[in-house]
């Protein structure tokens, strides 16, 4: 592959990935409004297009044409930078997430991700851990008490749950022996006795505990109910984005949903076998089916997110902290020790 081809392929993949991600973000918002509507015995959006399917478009237009208000009391450079930081880190992590195997288009072999890195998982964790600055700085630079409280809660919460989140992945890493997401997924291909897929939650030692810890910590990391303390409407108006309006608010919104999608992608890749699934039929179907299986898993996680949001009430702040440090973290450490022991004794 020469350099022109390399750049061309990279640009095409970047544009495609960002476009896909932003579309997915827009329709996750639609899905959430629709589902939560039905959970609460309402209709959700119905006016714009069939089933309200054009609602994201209308929302986007509205965000763009709203007045972009900058309150006089804010710390201006950081106030403007904060939503950018949030969105940039939320969109960057998608670059390292593989959505399928290798494809061959017009004589060029390329993996279905923007770039393949051996340390993929580590870098994704790094990028998501930097995303908290957007929220923290938004809270501080807004110079209002609700925003500050929201920002403080967010940074404390995200740092606390990041520990449990990171440790919950160690079990899978011990079994896979690699940080490379593609290798981790490839290690999960095939089935036991032709029935049970060799996903890490079904392996010996099973990573089901790690999976549940990851799922719980992921809700806290993305500030979703039942852990959406940073923007608890009943106490903090809107938390860290109280002072934001128009597109700047929309950027926080997009970052939150993009993070949800990233977290869902990671969960499917690490615990549920990524894009592996029954594949049959002509060549073109064989090429597309893995991506479909992967998308189905991600959709399942997003559905679960919204379902939980419509079901569970919000935690109190001290409950959240106690849960993270006194329950999730010890459980995650125990999971690491048990997994390591079993693997060491077996080898």
């Amino acid at each position: 592959m020469n350099i022109t081809q390399f750049i061309l392929v990279a640009v095409v993949k970047i544009v495609l990935a960002i476009w896909l991600l932003l579309t997915a973000v827009a329709y996750t918002v639609w899905l959430e409004r629709k589902l939560v509507g039905h959970i609460q015995n309402r209709w959700g959006p119905t006016r714009v297009g069939p089933f309200g399917l054009l609602q994201p478009l209308a929302d986007g237009m509205k965000f763009i044409f709203k007045e972009d208000l900058t309150p006089p009391h804010v710390n201006k450079p950081l106030y403007i930078a904060a939503p950018m930081i949030s969105l940039v880190f939320a969109l960057t992590s998608i670059a390292l997430i593989p959505v399928g195997g290798w494809v061959r288009v017009a004589g060029v072999n390329t993996p279905l991700e923007i770039t393949e890195v051996n340390m993929g998982l580590l870098i994704i964790l790094g990028i998501t851990s930097l995303g908290v600055y957007g929220v923290a700085l938004a809270g501080w630079s807004s110079n209002s008490k609700y925003s500050l409280l929201g920002g403080l809660r967010a940074s404390a919460q995200m740092v606390s749950y990041e520990v449990a989140l990171g440790l919950s992945l160690v079990g899978v890493l011990i079994l896979a022996g690699s940080f490379n997401l593609r290798e981790i997924v490839d290690a999960q291909s095939g089935t036991f006795w032709g029935v049970i897929p060799r996903w890490y939650i079904f392996r010996w030692p099973p990573q089901i505990v790690g999976f549940l810890i990851y799922l719980t910590a992921a809700y806290a990391e993305t500030n979703r109910l039942p852990f959406d303390l940073p923007e608890a409407e009943t106490e903090l108006v809107a938390g860290y984005h109280t002072e934001y309006s128009s597109m700047k608010f929309a950027m926080f919104f997009m970052a939150e949903y993009a993070n949800m999608i990233t977290v869902a992608c990671l969960a499917s890749l690490l615990f549920l076998g990524g894009w592996h699934g029954p594949v049959a039929g002509p060549a073109i179907v064989r090429a597309v089916l893995p991506v479909f299986w992967f998308g189905l898993r991600v959709f399942g996680f997003l559905f679960l997110y919204i379902w939980v949001r419509g079901t569970l009430p919000r935690f109190r702040y001290d409950q959240l902290m106690a849960f993270g440090w006194k329950f999730l973290l010890p459980l995650a450490i125990a999971n690491v020790i048990v997994t390591a022991l079993i693997v060491a004794l077996r080898s």
């Binding site: 580590l122 790094g126 851990s129 403080l152 940074s155 990041e162």
Partner: peptide
């Protein structure tokens, strides 16, 4: 370095 220092310890500093 990124996860611990930039993403963890510095968040607490800022906090």
């Amino acid at each position: 370095q990124i996860i611990l220092y930039a993403g963890g310890i510095m968040v607490l500093f800022l906090f």
